[in-house]
Simulated scan of single mutants.
Amino acid sequence: MEHSPWWRVDLMGVYSINKVTIANRKCCGKLISGAQIRIGNSLHSNGNNNQLAATIWSIPNGGTETYEFKPIKGRYVNIVLPGKRRILSMCEVEVYGGE
């Protein structure tokens, strides 16, 4: 267990992101509840203070959810689970957008 565990992808360039799809593991579905999708160009606080795009409230075990939002420009896409003694668990993340 960690304090505010996170996952990040570096897109190696600035893009206009408008959709993120997350596939959950077949077990442990509730572990992702409350996670935030954050997008931006800063690595301050590991990028976990970048603009909030969406909050993940629930993804069923083995399920996939897509989060669509107004385009946000950024190089980094973070999934962060705020709080103490948390475990961030997910299977796959897909990021969509354009230049």
Rank of each mutant, 00 (worst) to 15 (best):
H3F: 07
H3P: 05
S4F: 07
P5R: 06
P5L: 06
W6R: 02
W6H: 12
R8M: 11
R8P: 01
V9K: 11
D10P: 00
D10S: 01
M12W: 11
M12Q: 14
V14K: 03
S16F: 05
S16K: 05
S16C: 11
I17C: 05
N18K: 08
N18C: 08
K19C: 11
K19S: 13
I22D: 01
A23E: 15
A23G: 14
A23N: 14
A23P: 00
R25S: 09
K26N: 14
C28M: 09
C28Y: 10
C28W: 11
C28P: 08
K30N: 15
L31R: 08
G34I: 13
G34N: 01
G34Q: 04
A35W: 05
Q36N: 11
Q36W: 08
I37V: 12
I37R: 00
R38K: 10
R38A: 02
G40T: 12
N41I: 14
S42Q: 10
L43K: 06
L43A: 07
H44R: 13
N46L: 07
N46G: 05
G47F: 03
G47S: 05
N48I: 15
N48T: 15
N48P: 00
N50Q: 03
L52P: 00
L52R: 01
A54S: 12
T55V: 13
W57V: 08
I59Q: 03
N61R: 08
N61K: 10
G62N: 04
G63E: 10
T64G: 02
T66Q: 07
Y67D: 07
E68K: 04
F69H: 03
F69C: 08
I72M: 00
G74V: 14
G74D: 06
R75C: 04
V77Y: 09
N78G: 05
V80Q: 02
V80H: 06
V80L: 04
P82N: 08
G83I: 14
K84N: 10
K84T: 07
K84A: 06
K84P: 04
R85Q: 13
R85A: 06
R86G: 05
I87W: 06
L88N: 08
L88G: 06
S89M: 08
M90L: 15
C91T: 14
C91S: 15
C91N: 15
C91M: 13
V93P: 06
V95C: 05
V95A: 00
G98Q: 13
G98K: 11
E99V: 15
